[in-house]
Structures are given as C-alpha cells and as structure tokens.
C-alpha cells in the first residue's frame, strides 16, 4: 500500500500539486486520471521519488519514504518498477540486456539464474523472440512490453506506469492494460497508473483518483465514475460525442 498525505509541490512559484492525500491499495490497479497539465505526472514522479514534495509525506507500506536518506531510499527503489511513457529503454542495449540490467547490478545470481529470470519475464510479456533486438527496432507496443518486463524482473512490490498506452492503437492498449492488471493481481503488487485513456479507466480502473488543477477532485472506481455528479469529472470522462451519447442512455 502507498499512502500520501497533504502533498504540496510547486515549480518556480506555480503550485502544481495542492494538498493531495490519497491511498493506493495493494493488489489493485490504481489509476490517476486527469487532463493534460493537471499535475498527474508530477504526482506520479513525486510518489516515485523523482521530485521531492515541498511538504507532506509519502508512505510505502509502513516506511515513510520522504524521511529516508538517499542511501535508504535506494533500498526501497529496488522494490519499485516503473514504466515510462516512452518506454525509456537504454538505446545502446538489446531488449535482453535491458531486462537483465537490474539483475546484474542488484543480485548475486549466477549467469544461468539471471538468464532464466530474463527469459521468464520476456515470455511473460510475449517478447521471447525479441530479446536480441534494440529498442529502435521495436514497435510502440513491443517497447511498452519490454519496459514491463524490465520493471518486473526484480519482483517489485510497487509498479508505477506513466501513460502506458500513449501512442498505441486501441487494441494494443487493451493488451498492455490487461498485462499490467494480470501482473498486479498475480504478484500482489501496488500498481499506480497515470492515464487519460478512458478505455483503460473502464477496463482496469479498480481505484480511480481524478486530479484537476493540482487538486484531488474525485475518488472512486470504474462503476462509480459513470454515475458521479462531479461536473469537472463528467466533462473529462464524457468529453467525446460518443461518450456523451452513452451517458444519455444510462
């Protein structure tokens, strides 16, 4: 479980996160949704430690992450997997080497054990045939799957995904969503996904937090979101003509 209390964050005097308190549950896909520029990426990067909050606290289970030293944070970071918007695979390494990197640096496993683990993770994301390829040789969906394989190779307790569907077609998006959801349930991970893709919300939104102008505006799940009487949330959720028609028919 990840909890944050009263998080404030500003850049050059502009408040981006304004008093955010939320609890993300273990074994569930927790979604942070909101319009572009609402502060959801900053929230995700603050949770993961890439930004330091101006005030407030973040707890990973019982550990207060914001009070840890740099070295102590490194221990928690080994329990964190993250999937970036663009995949963020190391360009100069193959898919196999990308997935193997955390094992090389942080475990004392033998070469055979590492090889077995990498192959297992690649197979899990259906990329066992692509281990020898470089990131520049992969499609968008394959890059995301390779990033997922790298994120889970150390058996993380927490998984963060920054817009995992951006740039993907709807079918591939669903494949990625389901993969993340299955992994979350299978390994009992606390997964936090940052998205503005409504298909993802309706597919895997077990817990949804809506961020608007840096504030937590609404919290619920995929069933509740359709009946919420929050104007800003409804404007976001039912933005398209098709969604508006669907709302009318509810």
């Amino acid at each position: 479980m990840i909890k944050c209390h009263n998080i404030f964050k500003s850049f050059d005097g502009r408040t981006v996160l304004d008093d955010i308190s939320v609890e993300f549950e273990t074994g569930k896909t927790n979604l942070i949704i909101g319009r572009s520029g609402s502060g959801k990426t900053v929230l995700l990067k603050t949770l993961v430690g890439l930004h330091t909050p101006d005030s407030g606290s973040i707890h990973f289970d019982d550990v207060c992450y914001t009070e840890l030293s740099f070295e102590e944070r490194k221990r928690i970071r080994k329990d964190i997997g993250m999937i970036f918007q663009g995949g963020a695979l190391i360009d100069s390494s193959t898919v196999y080497e990308n997935v193997r990197l955390p094992l090389d640096l942080f475990t004392n496993q033998s070469a055979a054990e590492k090889d077995e683990r990498v192959r297992f993770c690649l197979e899990r994301v259906e990329l066992s045939h692509a281990g020898h390829l470089y990131p520049s040789e992969l499609s968008g969906g394959m890059i995301k799957r390779a990033a997922i394989a790298r994120a889970i190779v150390l058996n993380p307790k927490y998984l963060f995904c920054d817009e995992p569907n951006s740039g993907l077609d709807p079918q591939t998006s669903i494949v990625i969503d389901n993969l993340i959801h299955d992994i979350t349930v299978e390994y009992n991970i606390t997964t936090i996904i940052n998205t503005h893709d409504m298909n993802s919300v309706m597919e895997i939104g077990e817990k949804i937090v809506y961020i608007h102008q840096g504030k937590k505006w609404w919290e619920g799940n995929k069933d509740e979101i359709l009946h919420a009487d929050n104007k800003e949330l409804n404007d976001f959720v039912f933005a398209s003509a098709m969604a508006k028609r669907a709302k009318m028919s509810l």
Binding site: K45, V48, G49, L50, K74, R75, R77, K78, I80, G81, M82, F84, Q85, G86, A88, L89, I90, D91, L101, P102, L105, F106, F160
Partner: peptide
C-alpha cells in the same frame, strides 16, 4: 542528453542505480 530527455536516466534512478 538524449538519455535525459527520453527519461532513460530517470529509469536508471528509479531502479536504484
């Protein structure tokens, strides 16, 4: 620089590297 803007450096940091 390219690794920085494509978040590859952030990815390394997240891994604890």
């Amino acid at each position: 620089g390219t690794m920085r803007i494509t978040e590859q450096i952030d990815a390394l940091e997240i891994m604890g590297i």
